[in-house]
Every structure is written in structure tokens, then in C-alpha cells.
Write a protein that binds this DNA or RNA. Structure first.
Length: 318
DNA sequence: CGTTGGCCCTGATCGC
DNA sequence: TGCGATCAGGGCCAAC
């Protein structure tokens, strides 16, 4: 279940390898992994093959690799025959979303195929020679896509990993994440005050704040002592501020732990193996003692997901 | 327009 | 041992 910290581990691991690398070939083994790509898989392969990768950028749980080969878009000649038609450039990127179970693995050609391999890119890298970039995904909720880059609404850098104010079109509606220096705290609190919904649903709404998934939502709510179904409008400003601070602490802590266990040869996002699970206080801890008060943690069904919380520490306050 | 419920997807695990 | 049922949830979209 990769959330912001896990995706950032992938981004920071990919960046030094893919920057300046040339895509030699593309193999699509599972067409459904291109669900977010507009057009057939042949189009995906054609546009990616031969392109130079310009880095690795992340906003929330979305990752993208800007492509430095621009496409020339011929404008129809408006004048008489013989006049040279003008052309403009179109910037685009390889967008990656890991979904629930996606992994991006950097390997060499001697390593065996993963049975869940969906898409493979062969890269010519500047320093590491030929490298396989394998997109592995059990549940096929993740995807790759080629998408146009468009300007950000606020003109600020689109995400972490680049100063460019260009964002893939399909990511433009995704809010900045709480670790983004351009994240607008005041706007976040203003929207919470106006929403008619529960706080956990708001935390999981990627158009309000991005990067938070079920695990870190439960962890931040536990740390801030807020019940998952507390109406957002009833949350006082001080408590909302505390909650946002706890979100940042939880994400930052997981990020720090992920950074230490990262192996440069192997970009690992295996959430199922409990990547950061050794530091969880609430998620998956149903039946265990609350680390703060000792009473048992409870698991509710909420939004078709599990919600883990301490009924004593986290009560709805009217 | 804001909000919400349902859907997609399949390997791993569990219970009988 | 075999096999069906159950579980996991991010993002999107139809429906209200």
C-alpha cells in the first residue's frame, strides 16, 4: 500500500539512475496496466521508445519521469503553398502510479522475470549501462501512461524532484502534499471548515491534500487523538493544526526510516512485507494495547476500508 | 456543485 | 488435499 513515503523512496531511488537515460525498448505484457494512458499500447510504446528521461518527480502518490524528446506538432499551413509551416513542441512525461501493489524495480538482465511483471523498459543509463526498469503489479490498480505536461495553476514547481512548473495533465487536479513547500495550510483549514464530511474521508481526498493513504491516515488520527468520523467542520482550528502537524510527522518519520533501508540497486516498494510497519501505533493493531492508554485498539469498517483507532483516546467531540 | 457509494482487480490466506 | 470465500484499498465516476 504505497503512500507518500514509499513513493518517495521509489522516486529518490530512480532519480540518479534514470536521469539522462535513454529508453531503448518498451514491452507491455499487460495492457490493463496502461489504463491511464489515452490511446492504444502501440502509441505508448512508440512515444516512449528512444526518449531521454529527464529525472523523477513526485506529487503525493503520483510519480512522473519527464521526457526530454519533444514531439513536433505541425501546425497546418495557413498561407499559400511553399511557405514553411511552423511547428511547436509538446512536452510530456511517463506517469507512474503504484496503486495498491505496484513496484518499480531496477534490475540487470541476469535477474529472472517476476511473474507479475506488467511493463518493462530497457534503459541505457549514463553510469550503470543497460538497466531493466520493471513495473510489477499484482492487482493492476497501478498504471503507467504517457501524458502531456501542463502549467501548474499557481506557477510553483509541480512537485518534488524538479523546479519545473509543469505537471502531467492527469495529475493537475491532485492537491499538493503536506511536505510540499507550496502546500497552502490556510486553504486546507478553510476547506475543512466548509466540508460536510468526516475527517478521514477528507484526509484521503487527494484533491484536498495528497499523499495520505489508509495507513498514515489512521496513524495521524491516532497521534492527534481525532476520531476518523469527526465532522471536518466541527474540528477546531487548533485541533486541525495539530492534525496536520501529526500528518507531517508521521509521513516524515516513515520517510526517514525508508531512506535508511533503501538499497540503491533495488527500488523496493513492497508494502505487503511491512515496509514501515514496525513503527505503527494503530493501523493493523486491532486487539493490541493502545500505546498511549493501554486499552485495545479497534478496527471498524469505514469507506470500504479498515479504520483502526483507540475508542478511548479518539472520541467524536461535538 | 458537494458528497457518497460502488467498482475495479487478483495473489495470498483462511476455513471447512 | 482441495477449493471456494474472503481480504487488501487508491482513484475514479455515476448518482443523488
Amino acid at each position: 500500500m504505497p503512500e507518500l513515503p514509499e513513493v518517495e523512496v521509489v522516486r529518490s531511488g530512480l532519480e540518479p539512475v534514470v536521469t539522462g537515460a535513454v529508453v531503448r525498448s518498451v514491452e507491455v505484457r499487460e495492457g490493463r496496466s496502461l489504463r491511464r494512458h489515452v490511446g492504444p499500447s502501440e502509441d505508448f510504446v512508440e512515444r516512449l521508445t528512444g526518449a531521454t528521461l529527464g529525472g523523477a518527480v513526485r506529487r503525493g502518490k503520483f510519480l512522473w519521469l519527464p521526457l526530454e524528446r519533444v514531439e513536433l506538432v505541425e501546425t497546418p499551413p495557413t498561407n499559400r503553398a511553399g511557405e514553411v509551416s511552423t511547428s511547436s513542441t509538446r512536452l510530456y512525461a511517463l506517469v507512474i502510479h503504484l496503486g495498491m501493489s505496484g513496484q518499480v524495480l531496477l534490475r540487470d538482465e541476469s535477474q529472472p522475470d517476476d511473474p507479475l511483471l506488467r511493463i518493462r523498459l530497457l534503459l541505457d543509463t549514463a553510469e550503470d549501462g543497460p538497466v531493466r526498469l520493471d513495473f510489477v503489479d499484482q492487482r493492476i490498480f497501478g498504471s503507467m501512461a504517457i501524458d502531456d505536461l501542463v502549467p501548474t495553476a499557481d506557477g510553483r514547481a509541480a512537485g518534488l524532484g524538479s523546479d519545473s512548473a509543469l505537471v502531467p495533465a492527469q495529475v493537475a487536479h491532485i492537491a499538493r502534499d503536506p511536505l510540499d513547500p507550496a502546500f497552502d495550510d490556510r486553504r486546507f483549514f478553510d476547506i475543512l471548515a466548509k466540508r460536510r464530511t468526516g475527517i478521514k474521508r477528507a484526509l484521503l481526498d487527494q484533491t484536498l491534500v495528497s499523499g495520505i493513504g489508509n495507513i498514515y491516515a489512521d496513524e495521524a488520527l491516532w497521534a492527534a487523538r481525532v476520531h476518523y468520523d469527526q465532522p471536518t467542520a466541527s474540528l477546531s482550528l487548533p485541533r486541525a493544526k495539530t492534525l496536520l502537524a501529526e500528518v507531517r510527522l508521521v509521513l516524515g518519520k516513515a520517510l526517514a526510516e525508508g531512506g535508511t533501508s533503501f538499497d540503491a540497486q533495488y527500488v523496493n516498494v513492497n508494502g505487503a512485507s511491512g515496509y514501515f510497519s514496525h513503527s505503527l501505533n494503530a493501523y493493523g493493531q486491532q486487539g493490541e494495547a493502545c500505546p498511549r492508554c493501554g486499552r485495545p485498539i479497534v478496527r471498524d469498517q469505514f469507506m470500504n476500508r479498515g479504520s483502526h483507532y483507540c475508542p478511548f483516546c479518539q472520541r467524536i467531540r461535538v
